[in-house]
Design a protein around this nucleic acid. Structure first.
Lengths: 189, 189
DNA sequence: ATCACTATACCGAACGATCGGTAAAGCACA
DNA sequence: TGTGCTTTACCGATCGTTCGGTATAGTGAT
């Protein structure tokens, strides 16, 4: 009967598993590491995810997409584009713990082709949210598309920097400049 | 007599090995994959690198640092900062094959802490080169430092995007905007 | 020029450890 | 006594690594 909603322990489970994959990559996230991080033995993980590691990774990607979509929901509401852009920046900052957390997209990008598709879905979904705000702010479709994907790139790059050197400055500045990026028309051709 | 003659085959060897690590990450770069990519059998790789996989990764990082430093050498010559910034952008574009190649720094960032230090060295070296040009262009030390690391972040993020979706647009735009970034004083506080 | 010896580069086969994955027994609670 | 979840124990495959051996190219003494 219990096709029931995702329990709180499932949510914590996915969070701890996702943290391992984000930090060490798909190939670096061994079942031993996943087991240790989650507190569940290896066979218990197979009870939760009968499809094995592939299903674990898929679940992490799906969960990440869902949580991120929720964090970006303010992109699709009615209202002032500038205020919505601020809300997006705040949501992104919270999602990545102000730059302290590793990014799953980056981890997935250092993997085989099939896994990269999940990363691509996350990127396009994210970019579409930003693009929608940029469109409402008066940018042309081309400008909005380019502005959105470049904003995503800037934040992803900042997360690479914080992951390598620990410097969260680029992340903070990328978020701070996000509202202006999304709401002002680029000057040059 | 010939203590360490770096032969041309050594250079090709490091290039092919580095490509595997950049694309699949340190943990994803198994000896089997490294062997297949280089054409050398596993035991032969141990002849070239007696220290095993760790030595291979170290050699790749060192080689990457050296080649990148060479590509960024125009940062430290005398001359017009704007022209030097253009040269830097051209060097970066060539280094990453206009965004088609994977970035070793990103691959190293999805690894254990010890390996991340190599990535951090690459980032700081790269940022220092850009910072030097920005200083010569008249930016204050703080402005130059921030501008340089943010420019590196923008390019790294663009490489994440191209690795995931295959879209090299962000990379091209990041390079195109690099000279203006490095040579114009930021407007806001 | 020949021979014994050394150094270099490569490879096949195997090592112990760990990988992802499976089966069956143990436990908690109905 | 079931039933859902966890655990111990185990499996074949692959991991990084090592060993033994082959082929070639010097090198020094004769």
């Amino acid at each position: 009967m219990s096709v029931r909603p995702v329990s709180i322990s499932d949510r914590n489970l996915l969070a701890s598993l996702g943290a391992v994959v984000s930090r060490f990559g798909v190939e670096g996230a061994s079942l031993a590491r996943l087991s240790q991080a989650s507190g569940l033995k290896k066979a218990s993980l197979y009870h939760r995810f009968p499809g094995g590691k592939d299903e674990i990774v898929d679940a992490i990607v799906d969960d990440t997409e869902a949580r991120f979509a929720k964090a970006m929901s303010s992109a699709y509401v009615e209202g002032d584009p500038a205020a919505r852009a601020e809300a997006l920046a705040a949501g992104i900052g919270e999602y990545y713990a102000q730059g302290a957390d590793s990014c799953l997209i980056i981890a997935l990008s250092v993997s085989g082709d099939e896994i990269r598709e999940g990363a691509a879905r996350c990127v396009t979904g994210w970019s579409s949210a930003l693009e929608n705000v940029a469109l409402d702010a008066g940018l042309t479709p081309d400008q909005a598309r380019i502005t959105a994907i470049d904003a995503v790139a800037a934040i992803e790059g900042a997360l690479v920097i914080s992951a390598t050197t620990g410097d969260t400055g680029p992340f903070e500045r990328a978020l701070a400049s996000l509202p202006r990026r999304l709401t002002t028309v680029p000057e040059s051709a």
